[in-house]
Design a protein around this nucleic acid. Structure first.
Length: 267
DNA sequence: CGCACCCCCTGCCGGC
DNA sequence: TGCCGGCAGGGGGTGC
């Protein structure tokens, strides 16, 4: 579900927590990708949250000499001040003024803390800061893999997922099946530029809400949705007209996952 | 090392 | 109406 724009939206939605003290952590269900220890967070009870940071799809909560990392997987949510318990509530964090619920249906999400955080972080450059120099230095130019799959590799670029890879390759006019080694400097430059542009637009739209992803806002409603799905040009649009040339958008499978593209504009 | 394949888990939707 | 297969913004492990 959540790719960089969604995680960035969640990060900003939680910024009001910075400066508050963590008073309690309640472990409601330990079953996540990595089993949650019963004493999760005990090391920083009574401590102030110093900062919220994001790298790729990973969200960091920084405390004095300690940190948590969250990954939302496909269906993870971090919601503020929920009045009702979700049946999929895993962890509840109670701060001096607000509380945060970590909820996940499919259990692909996880929370880690302390020494386990660093080894879990992605090594690739954050996708919002991607420049052609990073792509030139990466293994793309020596790889026979399809560019679509290479861009999904979080050790090359951190933050891209199935939606935004499709959208940015359309923007750049690159066929997702092209081998990494076949791409020219100019084409990689177009990819880097399109990556930044698409992600900036998606962050502005507060991400894409298809079925699961939401973020919270202080106020009446329990949560809000993003709107970038209204701007999709190829993703989930198989059989519809290309917004540029009106040819049919195609759907193929790469690495077991759907790829959407315009065979005419992306060649 | 790179890559194809399969797994993890739950819900939803379309087809029969 | 009901069941079943396929599919979904995630990643990781295995074996060739």
């Amino acid at each position: 579900m959540p790719e960089l724009p969604e995680v960035e939206t969640v990060r900003t939605s939680l910024e009001g927590l910075v400066g508050q003290k963590l008073s309690a952590v309640s472990v409601r269900d330990r079953r996540l990708r990595y089993r949650v220890p019963p004493n999760f967070g005990a090391a920083v009870l009574g401590k102030k949250l110093l900062a919220l940071e994001r790298t790729g799809k990973y969200l960091l909560w920084k405390f004095p000499d300690h940190q948590f990392v969250f990954h939302l997987g496909m269906t993870g949510r971090l919601l503020i001040n929920q009045k009702e318990d979700s049946p999929y509530l895993k962890l509840r964090f109670v701060f001096s003024r607000d509380s945060v619920d970590f909820i996940d249906v499919r259990r692909f999400a996880f929370a880690l803390e302390g020494a386990a955080v660093l080894p879990a972080m992605p090594r690739g450059i954050d996708a919002l800061a991607l420049r052609v120099s990073h792509l030139l230095k990466s293994k793309i130019r020596s790889s026979t893999s399809a560019i679509k799959n290479l861009l999904l590799d979080q050790s090359i670029v951190a933050g891209l997922g199935n939606i935004y890879v499709a959208e940015l390759l359309f923007d750049a006019g690159i066929d997702p099946r092209r081998q990494g080694k076949s791409l020219s400097d100019a084409e990689l430059s177009r990819i880097a530029k399109a990556c930044r542009a698409v992600l900036r637009r998606a962050v502005r739209a507060k991400g894409s809400s298809i079925s699961d992803y939401v973020y919270s806002l202080p106020g009446e409603k329990a949560f809000s949705t993003g709107s970038y799905q209204k701007q999709f040009r190829v993703y989930s649009r198989a059989g519809q007209g290309c917004p540029r040339c009106n040819n049919l958008i195609m759907k193929i499978v790469q690495g077991g996952r759907s790829t959407f593209f315009c065979p005419r504009c992306q060649s």
